[in-house]
Nucleic acid binder design. Sequence first.
DNA 1: TGGAAATTGGACTAGGTAGTCCATACTCAG
DNA 2: CTGAGTATGGACTACCTAGTCCAATTTCCA
Lengths: 200, 200
Amino acid sequence: MPQVLTAKGRSTRARIVQAAAELVAEKGAAAMSLDDVCERAHVSRSQLYHYFDDRDDLVRAVINATTDSVLLAQDGLLDHLDTWTGLDRWFRALVALQEGREARGGCPIGSLVGQLAERDPGARENLADGFKRWEGHLREGLERMQDRGRLSVHADPASLATSTMALLQGGLLLTQVRRDPKQLRTALAAARVLLRSAAA
Amino acid sequence: MPQVLTAKGRSTRARIVQAAAELVAEKGAAAMSLDDVCERAHVSRSQLYHYFDDRDDLVRAVINATTDSVLLAQDGLLDHLDTWTGLDRWFRALVALQEGREARGGCPIGSLVGQLAERDPGARENLADGFKRWEGHLREGLERMQDRGRLSVHADPASLATSTMALLQGGLLLTQVRRDPKQLRTALAAARVLLRSAAA
DNA sequence: TGGAAATTGGACTAGGTAGTCCATACTCAG
DNA sequence: CTGAGTATGGACTACCTAGTCCAATTTCCA
């Protein structure tokens, strides 16, 4: 393992993670082979082991990269979850995203849970960190709403954020398994009802 | 492939599916090897291919067996989802189940979605069938409640059932990734709020 | 500019994989 | 009791896998 990465090294490492992330998204974590990664990233075998301890280490890097890209895809939405219109915009964007992919793939992070959580404790923690960051944006938005008196003082922003994330993840799972984006639309409509029921 | 199975044949086939289902639950679908299955079921290689076309065929049989066992584990609860107390009993039982397993494993069906849905279209359909059976019990219960005037005439039992399933699956996913059964408790408490908001 | 560290290439090992094949033993109806 | 179909045993193939190893090349800073 190198002590310091040069610019070239960082670029190679990033290319490896990118290729691995694509393969994980396409074929699943277990079906991603290191040979495939080498081919797609145009690197040799030893470069993988130059930048990563082993396969599990690479998978954990993929989880972090995927989390970053999922949050980036929601950029401009996650910082405005403190108004009803901001929440509705977020919900609509999530549904539109699934319609665009014809309900394929589910949640890039969520679908890794079943694949990795019981297999590699480190991977489970990385996935949990990803969900924490995601849910954190929502919880903070709801807290700001409560501060501004838009949410009842009896409401619990943390629980509401957790329940909304559950509806989102469950809705994505049902969307994926049924190949029907309406499943997510229904779940997020329920999230809207739930949040409104906590309005001041 | 045999035309008719003898009693002995049925027993052997069931032993194979049982062993495979255990391994899938323990190690994930991709990590279940046919050698492992042979060893655990005490059968030889050729017996697998005597009763199943190939690996995918066995996995689909595992999905069906797992669905049956998940529904069986809720026996006595799923037929009483037409009263508030019946719903609460169901919710409490689901939480207790996760507490009993220390939040490990998530939903035996749900966690297979991310592993198989994009890989094998037939597996995806089998999983969708499983969810349909499960959700069907809830939808029918809610319909009976509506018929009896316990649910608003404006409520949509099908959407409520879908949203509740989303909360259940999402809650299980968060429970698994965070190793915390409270995540499911929170999600199901939200389901209760959602259903109550549709009360007559 | 010299040399230590970072980067790269690619062959190689050891083990696991799904699936095939052929022979044998069993079962049960006619 | 016999023979056609069912059930079983286990070796074998061809391939893919993660990980190792040694050597060569490039980078960069002291």
